[in-house]
């Protein structure tokens, strides 16, 4: 019998600490499989965030750096400038990327920094126990929006891909989801394309992955996927928001 599906060699043997059904694990696999298929693991350096995926440095078998909260794109910038031939990526959640690290994200993007950002959006702060995130939906109940996010007081969610797509340094920006197997396949293709964009030196690439947090949403893992479909995808439509990869020089 031939192997149809097995764990990527770009992942270590360390058991993941994520809650049952958390889609971080799926997204880790997609990043690992993409790097493996591109034979980029040996020159890859990943940057882990602060948040649920803080210990991602234990899971990817490439070299890894753990960043202060929100600063991953700045660290990736330093790495990339020191290792121009490296394949440098950040793996960040919504609080990390779209709240405390907004400046680092926007400026790495507008510089056309030749790095890849994997942005995991699950509309909540997971690690600290389910507080409102910059991407928490209007009306969504969290620990710190117990009556639902009131946009007159807490403002509106940030649509990261839409915002970044206006910047000239962004070579590739796509929003994907991991709620179904076909969508997981599309997410993988997007992540692989983002790495290819970087390897070709075409500029900043970001893949926003709509993800779940069954524990803090108070749903079973399967219900959480349905909640994502019913609530997140309408607010955060899937699709390609910027693609300058057809240009020979990318964004430059």
């Amino acid at each position: 019998m031939a192997m149809v599906y097995e764990k990527s060699k770009m992942l270590t043997d360390a058991p993941l600490h994520y809650c049952p059904g958390c889609t971080h694990g799926i997204i880790h696999k997609l990043v690992a499989e993409s790097l493996e298929e591109l034979e980029a693991g040996g020159r890859a350096v990943g940057v882990a965030p602060v948040g649920c995926s803080v210990m991602a440095y234990n899971y990817f078998s490439c070299d890894m750096v753990e960043a202060p909260h929100g600063r991953a794109p700045a660290i990736a910038t330093g790495l990339k400038r020191a290792l121009p031939d490296g394949v440098i990526f950040t793996y960040q959640g919504d609080g990390d990327l779209a709240a405390i690290g907004t400046a680092e994200t926007v400026h790495a993007a507008t510089r056309g920094e030749n790095i890849t950002v994997i942005f995991v959006n699950n509309a909540i702060y997971g690690m600290t126990g389910g507080q409102m995130a910059p991407t928490t939906l209007p009306g969504q109940v969290t620990q710190t929006t117990p009556y639902g996010r009131d946009v007159t007081k807490a403002g509106f969610p940030v649509r990261v891909c839409e915002m970044l797509s206006t910047l000239s340094g962004v070579a590739y920006a796509e929003r994907v989801s991991v709620d179904t197997v076909p969508n997981i396949r599309k997410a993988k293709a997007a992540i692989k394309k983002a790495f290819e964009t970087q390897i070709a030196g075409k500029g900043f690439s970001i893949v926003e992955v709509l993800s779940t947090c069954p524990t803090n949403w108070g749903l079973t893992p399967v219900e959480a996927l349905q909640w994502l479909r019913d609530n997140m995808i309408p607010y955060y439509p899937l699709g390609v928001y910027q693609d300058r990869t057809a240009n020979e020089k990318g964004v430059f």
């Binding site: 600063r71 660290i75 990736a76 910038t77 330093g78 990339k80 020191a82 290792l83 490296g86 680092e104």
Partner: peptide, 26 residues
């Protein structure tokens, strides 16, 4: 070499962290 004007002091020191991680004199 690299001269990079960062968006903030915070970003600049973290760029140093990244470059130093790679083993260069930053």
């Amino acid at each position: 070499g690299t001269y990079l004007q960062a968006e903030s002091e915070i970003a600049a020191i973290n760029m140093v962290l990244g470059a130093a991680s790679a083993g260069v004199r930053a």
